[in-house]
Simulated assay, not measured.
Amino acid sequence: MLWLPGGFNMRYGTVMKSEEKSKDVEPNESVGSIWVLVDQSKGYLTFASKEMLQDASEAGRHQGIKVHAVLIGGEVENETWAEQVGSYGADLLIRVDLAGINHLTAEASAYVLDKLSIKYPKPYLMLIGGTIEGQEIAARLAIRWKTAYAHDCVSFSIKSNGIVEAIRSTHGEKLETIVSLTQRPAIVSFKPNSAGVGPKNEDCKAGETTFTIDLTGSRFDQNVLRTIPADPALVDIGETDFILACGHGVVDKEGFEILQELAVRLGASVAGTRRANDEGWIGIERRVGLTGKTVAPQIYMAVGISGAREHVVGMDDSKIIIAINKEPKAEIFRLAHKGFIGDSKEIMSSLLKKLKVADAS
C-alpha cells in the first residue's frame, strides 16, 4: 500500500459506517470529474474498463460528477470509441494521440496523464485497472500528483461529504479494509472482475475530444525491447480473447483431453463450469460463473454446457458465443450466436481433424 501524507486513512472491519466530518460538497461542475483510464483489446473495451465506467457513472451520478474516459494511443483504427465508452456510462471521451514513441510503458502512461492534467483540470477521482501495469501507473501518478493511492480495490463510492471511500478485501478475503481518500485527486486501482458488467445503454454516445502529446526527445527509464504473446494455457481467463469452456457434457477425462488439444490448436484458453471444476478438469481460478469469474472474451465456445443461470451470468457479455451440446433444448442455445447439436466428443474430434489437415497443407 502506497501512502503519501495528507489524505489517507484506513480502517478494518466487516461492517463499517463512514465518519463524515467534512463539509458537504455541492454537486456541480466545479467539483471536477472522474477520470477512468480505459484499455482496449483488438478494437474493443476490456471487461475491466466497462466495469470501471459503469461503477464510476453510478458513483458520480449521486454527486453530479461527470465521467471522462481517457484512452491513450490512437493507433487502432476504430471510430466507435465514443459509442463504446458512452454506452457504459462515460460523458466524455478524451483520446490521447501519441507521437515519438513506439511502445507505451507504465512510466510513459503516468507522464501522459500528468501532462493531460495540465490541459484539463485534475480529476476528482482517478480510476485505473488493477493489472500489474495499471498498479504501476497508479503508483507513479500518485507520486507525480503528490496524492494518496489505494490499490487492488473491489468497490468504491463518493460519500455525501465528498470523501472517496474504497474497499479492499484483506486477510484472505475474510475482512474488508475501508480506505478513506480525503485529498484530491484520489487515485484508486480497481481489481478486475470485482463488480461485473450490467446492461449497456446503446443510445448513449459520449462527447469526444482529442489531445496530441509529442514524446519525441522525452527520456524514460523504462523501455520495451519486445512483446511476447501470452500463453493461452496460463493467461488469466479474465484477460483472454478466446475461451474454450467445458461442462459436464464433455463426459470424461478422454473428452477433456480432446478439448485441451483443440484449445491448443485454436489458441484458446481453457475454462469451465463448477461441475468441470468438481471433476478436476479445471482449477477454481478457471471456473466461470456465479461462484467463479466473470469473463467477456471476443469468442466463448461452450462445450457440453447446459446454460444454467449460475454459469451464464459469468459469460453472457462475450462478443460471440458458440455452443456445442447434445440436447437440442439446452438453455445455452438461447444465448448462442452459433450452435451445434450433437455428441461433444464427436464434434470436437471432427473439428480437430480438420484443423490438423489445414495445418499440414
Rank of each mutant, 00 (worst) to 15 (best):
S349V: 09
L2S: 15
I324Q: 04
T170H: 01
T80L: 12
A139H: 01
W145Y: 09
A323S: 05
K293L: 08
H151S: 13
K319T: 15
L4Q: 14
V67S: 10
N28T: 09
E19K: 12
V76E: 14
V38E: 13
A330I: 01
Q260N: 11
C204V: 15
A110R: 00
D241G: 15
A358F: 03
L125D: 02
C246D: 02
G247K: 01
T240P: 06
G292I: 05
A206T: 05
W35Y: 15
A110L: 11
T210N: 12
I178D: 09
V312S: 03
A195G: 12
L4V: 14
S194K: 02
F340R: 02
G73F: 10
D343R: 04
Y44C: 13
I228N: 12
V188Q: 04
L116Q: 04
Q298L: 09
G289R: 01
G304Y: 03
Y111M: 05
M1Q: 07
N28Y: 13
E79A: 15
A206H: 02
N102R: 08
F156M: 10
E83V: 09
I321V: 14
E20C: 13
T212S: 13
A110T: 10
V288C: 04
I132Y: 14
E254Y: 10
K23M: 10
V38G: 07
L37A: 14
L92P: 03
A99Y: 04
L4R: 03
D24W: 04
P5R: 08
E133F: 13
G342T: 11
A48F: 06
I341W: 07
L2W: 09
G73D: 07
K66Y: 14
V295E: 00
S160K: 09
P27V: 07
G247D: 02
L113P: 01
A336V: 09
K66W: 10
A150T: 10
A108H: 08
G267M: 11
E279G: 03
I258H: 15
N28L: 11
F340Y: 11
P192S: 09
V303D: 02
G162A: 07
G130R: 01
F242R: 06
R61M: 10
E20M: 13
F47S: 05
D39E: 15
G247M: 02
V31M: 06
W35G: 08
E83I: 13
K338I: 14
I94E: 08
I299N: 05
E346K: 07
Q183R: 15
I324T: 05
G172W: 00
D236C: 12
L45W: 09
T227A: 13
K66R: 15
V96P: 06
V31P: 03
Y300H: 02
G207Y: 04
G13S: 08
G292R: 00
M301G: 05
K354A: 13
V154Y: 05
T294W: 02
V313S: 06
Q63V: 03
L290Q: 15
K326M: 12
G314L: 04
Y120S: 03
W281Q: 02
D55F: 07
L127E: 12
M16K: 10
I282P: 00
D221A: 08
V264D: 07
Q183E: 13
T147C: 07
